[in-house]
């Protein structure tokens, strides 16, 4: 899992120049005081943030934090109660989802939504026919084959959408979104339910997509995966932003640990850190603590924060 545990730095050979987000560039996506209420209950509450072109922004938060709602708001399935969403310099909050797809926003669904009666290849062809490119049939088929190759679904191209395993359904979600030729890709928990090997593959794929110049917004529950893939991480809790920073900073933030694992764990971990800091070099200790978190966190947040 070593390849997934840390984001390559700017000097690492895998990061090409155009993948490096430009801090001065105008944001490709900006949310300004966006609120979404369901019957008075805020699912996303006064949220503002910006995504730079070429960036991978990770979004994490416990269950019910508003992550999927946020994807719905950006993708257009949901309309914000208030606030402004700007994409590539234009306000998009009033556009229906298909118009946003034409502008280059593609999303995956947390619960995979295949066209069950169509085979995998046709599922992807739909994305190529109607997405940003709006290709004609033969080119769409060619693009679909390329994309299937890329997500490693070629050998399952003939299966129907409902004959796939969970992991393959997630791949299909990715493939369909990629076939639309997006500029901004919204990934809603594409790594949930995957084995560690599959997670590593997904991380590698997301990096490769990003290297091609696609801005990616990754909503994820798996801390390890998101840390490996994100340039920055934004943490949602009860629909509000509680942190937005570099991965290491965010994951060490007591507020974040508390939101995820509860107050008691936060105190315990703070104590451990103090102990560790006295005995070893800080860097080594941090990574050891991270490894601990990885081992302990998954059962805990699934049970404790449902």
């Amino acid at each position: 899992m070593s390849s997934a545990s840390s984001r390559p730095t700017a000097s690492s050979p895998s990061g090409s120049p155009d993948a490096t987000p430009d801090a001065n560039a105008a944001p490709i996506l900006a949310l300004d005081a966006v609120t979404k209420r369901f019957g008075g209950l805020p699912a996303v509450d006064d949220l503002s943030f910006a995504v730079r072109p070429g960036e991978v922004l990770g979004i994490i938060g416990p269950n019910g934090a508003g992550k999927s709602t946020l994807i719905g708001l950006i993708g257009g399935a949901l309309a914000p109660t208030s606030g402004v969403i700007t994409y590539a310099g234009r306000a998009i909050a009033d556009l229906p989802p298909h118009r946003r797809a034409h502008l280059g926003i593609a999303r995956t669904f947390q619960i995979a939504q295949p066209f069950v009666g169509l085979d995998v290849r046709d599922n992807v062809i739909v994305g190529a026919l109607f997405g940003r490119r709006g290709l004609r049939r033969p080119e769409a088929a060619r693009v679909a084959d390329e994309v299937l190759e890329r997500v490693h679904l070629t050998h399952k191209a003939m299966l129907k959408g409902d004959q796939l395993t969970v992991a393959d359904r997630k791949r299909l979600e990715m493939a369909r979104a990629l076939a639309t030729n997006p500029r901004l890709l919204l990934l809603d928990e594409v790594m949930a339910g995957l084995t560690p090997t599959e997670v590593a593959q997904a991380v590698e794929l997301i990096r490769a997509i990003n290297r091609d110049g696609v801005t990616v917004l990754v909503v994820e529950h798996i801390m390890r995966a998101i840390k490996g893939v994100s340039d920055r991480i934004l943490v949602l809790h009860h629909g509000r932003k509680i942190a937005e920073d570099l991965p290491d900073e965010v994951l060490a933030d007591p507020k974040v640990i508390e939101a995820y694992l509860g107050e008691r764990y936060a105190r315990q971990r703070a104590a451990e850190r103090e102990g560790a800091a006295t005995s070893a070099a800080t860097g080594a200790a941090t990574s050891a603590a991270d490894a601990d978190t990885d081992a302990a966190e998954e059962p805990e947040w699934k049970g404790g924060l449902a």
Partner: peptide
């Protein structure tokens, strides 16, 4: 294309819309 769009709508309207099909 029209037919493909209709089948996509039948099979999953939300996904069809998200992929750029003006479903309505």
């Amino acid at each position: 294309r029209f037919g493909v769009a209709l089948v996509a709508i039948r099979e999953n309207e939300e996904a069809a819309e998200a992929l750029g099909i003006p479903t309505f």
